[in-house]
């Protein structure tokens, strides 16, 4: 085990996989940082420091700094993947997916199926998502809501450095397109990470981060920590919560959620995207369908409101699900007898 930051788990996993397989290549804006400047390549590195040192180790053919051209970056990832390479393309902010969506949604995601299963499309699209930086409406969004519903994509949302390591490795070795969502407020979080260079976490296997028998709380990313804080606080009152970290939203570990709800009879999903057609709504509906008989209270989804992400500190903190809002939801489902 080694102690490592979330962002360093990203870089070290990419480096290990590039070392292991010469077909792995990276591309993205400023991932080298300093190209064509007096300071030269790697003068500064990417803004999230998630590609530091890769250019020096693997060179310009395999670490491709691109112009600001998200559509071409995602399309190039698709073309690389169809040509025997294993691209890892970076979108600096998840919000920029709007610029590049066709190449992801109509191209990458659909090749395997449309081409009658004749092709593999091993591409990883990494992106920094989420609120917490007062970066306003176009630099703060959680985009898993739109991507999870797209057939042909696997969607990964790691919460801990160890999960970054295990899930990113699985993503890079996977033969299908994987969306890898990194929460920008978690990049500086430190945790224990296994040293094993083959450590992998399979997709569709949730992680139980707190165990209890009264309420099931499902979440992932930044908000998982808020859910853990609520669970820890309520222990003193004799209230026990299962806190489930989904790790991947597609595939979804239905079994872990259903097993838990069968015991607790109460479900809360805490989701960083707005409420309509959300991950929260999706999981609540799934549980209502498949575990109706176990439920002691209506399943609840805790989301931001149906608005863009606002700028000012007061507005952004009112926008995001908070520890207080999650606690209130837990008390609400417990109030049903």
């Amino acid at each position: 085990m080694a102690k490592m930051m979330y962002r360093d788990a990203v870089v070290s996993t990419i480096a290990e996989e590039m070392e292991r397989d010469e077909n792995v290549v990276c591309l993205g804006e400023d991932i080298v940082g300093g190209m064509g400047t007096p300071g030269g390549p790697e003068a500064i590195g990417g803004i999230w420091s998630t590609s530091t040192g890769l250019f020096g180790k693997f060179g310009a053919d395999r670490v491709i700094d691109t112009p600001i051209s998200e559509s071409a970056i995602m399309g190039a990832a698709a073309g690389l993947a169809l040509s025997g390479k294993r691209p890892i393309a970076e979108l600096m902010f998840a919000d920029f997916i709007g610029v590049s969506l066709d190449q992801i949604w109509n191209q990458l995601a659909k090749f395997r199926y449309m081409f009658g299963g004749k092709t593999k499309c091993p591409a990883v699209i990494r992106m920094a998502y989420g609120a917490g930086y007062n970066a306003a409406a176009q630099h703060s969004q959680a985009v898993h809501q739109i991507l999870t519903g797209m057939p042909g994509l696997k969607v990964v949302m790691p919460t801990t450095p160890a999960d970054v390591k295990g899930l990113l490795r699985t993503a890079i070795r996977d033969d299908d397109p994987v969306i890898f969502l990194e929460h920008k407020a978690l990049y500086g979080v430190t945790g224990e990470v296994p040293d094993d260079k083959d450590f992998m976490i399979p997709f569709g296997h949730a992680r139980l981060s707190r165990a209890g028998q009264d309420v099931t709380i499902v979440s992932t990313g930044l908000l998982l920590g808020f859910c853990e804080a609520v669970a820890d606080k309520l222990v003193a009152e004799g209230i026990g919560c299962d806190v489930i970290d989904l790790r991947t939203t597609s595939p979804l570990d239905e079994e872990a959620i259903l097993d838990s709800v069968e015991v607790t009879g109460r479900l809360i999903v805490v989701d960083e995207a707005p409420p309509r057609c959300s991950l929260g709504a999706d999981i609540c509906a799934m549980v209502a369908e498949k575990a109706f008989a176990s439920l002691k209270a209506p399943p609840l989804s805790v989301n931001p409101p149906h608005t863009p992400v606002p700028f000012a500190r007061e507005l952004e903190s009112a926008y995001l699900p908070s520890v207080d809002k999650i606690e209130a939801a837990v008390r609400k489902v417990l109030s049903y007898r």
């Binding site: 306003a136 630099h139 000012a312």
Partner: peptide, 15 residues
């Protein structure tokens, strides 16, 4: 980030 700002504090510098 004031509510008296040109965009009520919803947009900020970039908007």
């Amino acid at each position: 980030g004031s509510r008296e700002g040109l965009c009520k504090g919803k947009g900020g510098s970039m908007h």
